[in-house]
Design a protein around this nucleic acid. Sequence first.
DNA 1: TTCGTCTTCGCAAGGACATTCCGCAGATTC
DNA 2: GAATCTGCGGAATGTCCTTGCGAAGACGAA
Lengths: 153, 153
Amino acid sequence: MGALDAIDLAIMRTLQENGRISNAELAERVGLSPSACSRRLDMLEKSGTISGYHARLSNKALEYKMMVIVHISLSGQFAKTLTEFESAVRLCPNVLVCYLMSGEYDYILRVAAKDLEDYERIHRDWLSALPHVVKINSSFALREIIDRPNVGL
Amino acid sequence: MGALDAIDLAIMRTLQENGRISNAELAERVGLSPSACSRRLDMLEKSGTISGYHARLSNKALEYKMMVIVHISLSGQFAKTLTEFESAVRLCPNVLVCYLMSGEYDYILRVAAKDLEDYERIHRDWLSALPHVVKINSSFALREIIDRPNVGL
DNA sequence: TTCGTCTTCGCAAGGACATTCCGCAGATTC
DNA sequence: GAATCTGCGGAATGTCCTTGCGAAGACGAA
């Protein structure tokens, strides 16, 4: 797989910002003919450098107005404990992000809820039911300052 | 703005998974003629229900392998203090997410870095330079379990 | 019921677009 | 210098997107 040159990066940057423009417009923006642009895009997709395209839905429109950051501690760091916890957390549709962390807590989660009542349900039915959990700490987001899908190139 | 019916949700779900399929294929998947589908999609975009489309770039290809969760405390919660901090943090391209939080810390950030050296640079040049900060706590993600853009519909 | 209105559908047309083939030009190798 | 390789632009063809138009169903008022 060849290295990415400046035009490849321009294509990636453009599609990261506006993932549904036509190939013709993309070609014009990066200074290439449509045919050449189409070939490069095809290469970027097939090589996995661009792994997909996703519509960003307004959480407001979906009525997910509440974002909760959840810190979780487990009863141990054994491989089996971690695996069982991770398999369970993957099933909860409201968990947008989950990372195994260094530091005070074992996992950090980002959970979307419609309102406080909805979060109470998620906490009761999903989070409390996760295996090996010994401590759950929920912090509520008061305001969103930034929410980017990728690093600004 | 009218309510979203089942077909609107199907359009949103489909484009969330595959944001660059043609309108013709989208129409077929949701069981509509291309023209009707195009009109509905236009409405969803103009109303802000679909707020954009983004290519998902392989972090491996971009070499952003490190994800850091940063907790930040400010010297006060005055409106001016918050505004100045937020204006500054918006300028840092490595900050993917920033929320004003309830609880122990004032802000929580998700920062992408290429490696530890890169994070050291970000910490020195950006995070430490943010105004009114009195405490920065960095936690490193050891492994990504979940990273969804939206709630699973 | 019957009429008018509103919404949203499908169909058709023409203009734009995506993709593929082909030839060319510059770089690299032998 | 010839062969090879790579990546470009132009042309062609089949497909797609968009807009205008008429029709069908839902709904309320006379």
